[in-house]
Amino acid sequence: MSTVLFDLFGVIARPQSTEGKDRLVRTAGVSAAAFWDAYWALRPPYDRGETHGPGYWRQVADCLGTHFDDHRIAELIEADIAGWSAVDDTMVALIEELAAQGRRLALLSNIPEELASYYLARHTWLNHFQVRAFSCRIGHAKPEPDAYRWCQQALREEPGRILFVDDRQDNVRAAEAIGMRGHLFTTSARLRECLAQEETAR
């Protein structure tokens, strides 16, 4: 059976919640449009582990022309984690099922250190993944080719033997560009169909 390399957010974990987004903007005390421009523009280095949470939020403050003290930064980190903390129980059940079947599983996620630590401390189902490639710990983030190559080397698997599952088309295409097979995630039911077809084709 091929190895299944999963994305985390938008596949197993839910996308950033509306409540979480609102809480972040309220905590920052700035306009939503300006906040999200700064949040996303500065996110890639944070995801790659080139800065830590306080450093990231100081950069966001500088970009916004404001100042966040240590207390505000702690509140922003907590709010950011909360907004990304919900998981899809249906997908968690599928992970458990695949692991019980002996399927080899791996994870590739664009995630900062504070959020990675939160998930590892609270979700034992992450132990089912033989490789957990958190961008903050491997120094590469999707859709950079080296993020996928890092996973391939860690798995010691040929690219064509890896099925990459992500909810973003650009990330799937990047995986396919290095020889992996890709599945654009929409629902757990569609993913099950894909895995069943794979089994039938064996």
Rank of each mutant, 00 (worst) to 15 (best):
D37V: 08
S109Y: 05
F129T: 08
A121P: 07
E50I: 01
A82H: 11
S85E: 11
E19Y: 04
A41Q: 09
R48Q: 01
R122C: 03
V30Q: 06
E75Y: 00
G53K: 04
T124M: 02
H128A: 12
G10F: 02
L126S: 12
S17P: 14
S109E: 07
G102L: 08
V60E: 00
Q130K: 09
W40M: 00
A32P: 05
T90A: 15
V87A: 04
T18V: 15
P112G: 01
H71K: 11
G102K: 03
H71L: 12
G20S: 05
P45R: 01
S85K: 01
V131W: 08
A106M: 11
S85Q: 12
M91P: 10
H67A: 13
E114Q: 05
F68G: 15
G102P: 13
A33M: 14
L98D: 05
W125F: 14
Y39E: 07
A106N: 08
H71F: 00
P45Q: 00
I111W: 01
T27Q: 06
I81G: 03
S109K: 07
R122S: 02
V11W: 00
T18G: 11
Y56V: 02
E114K: 13
R72C: 04
A82V: 09
Y56Q: 03
P44D: 01
L107D: 04
F68H: 06
P112V: 02
P44H: 08
R104K: 14
L24E: 06
L76G: 03
L108G: 01
D22L: 14
Y56M: 00
A116H: 12
A61N: 06
L105S: 11
A41K: 05
S109T: 08
Y39F: 12
L98N: 03
